[in-house]
């Protein structure tokens, strides 16, 4: 879950873990999320690192602060996370795909044809 070998800093991993909790409805809108100290104890990490993870989510309007009460899940949180993951993950995969095609000296048109063919097959299977 939280891995030190990962290229991602721990605070990013904390943010992503909270996002997944929201996507799985384990944290619902307007529900209070873990404090930096709770997260620090849960994962044995420095509380300042946990706070950074929470701050990312506040900046992205996935969480909001209530003064003196803690942080809560915004109404749009789930939608924001879904959109973000779609763009980020998909773009990355497309870049990998294009790089691989270049190594194999497959031109752009053939690659597009392959994508079309794959799409047709998936459609056929789902019928």
């Amino acid at each position: 879950m939280i891995s030190l070998d990962s290229s991602k800093p721990i605070y990013v991993q904390i943010a992503e873990w909270l996002e997944t909790e929201i996507l799985r409805d384990r944290l619902k809108k307007d529900e209070k999320v873990y404090s930096q100290y709770q997260l620090a104890e849960m994962f044995t990490i420095n509380p300042a690192t946990a706070a950074k993870g929470l701050t990312i989510l506040v900046n992205e309007e996935i969480l909001y602060k209530k003064r003196g009460l803690g942080m809560f899940v915004t109404k749009e949180a789930k939608k924001i996370i879904q959109n973000k993951r779609k763009t980020n993950l998909l773009e990355e995969k497309v870049i990998d795909l294009v790089n691989e095609a270049n190594y194999l000296e497959i031109n752009e048109q053939s690659l597009i044809d392959m994508i079309k063919k794959a799409n047709e097959e998936i459609r056929k299977e789902s019928k």
Binding site: I2, L4, I10, F43, T44, I45, N46, A48, T49
Partner: peptide, 9 residues
């Protein structure tokens, strides 16, 4: 360092 890294600021 690998072990203590998560504790450090």
């Amino acid at each position: 360092l690998q072990e203590i890294e998560p504790l450090l600021e």
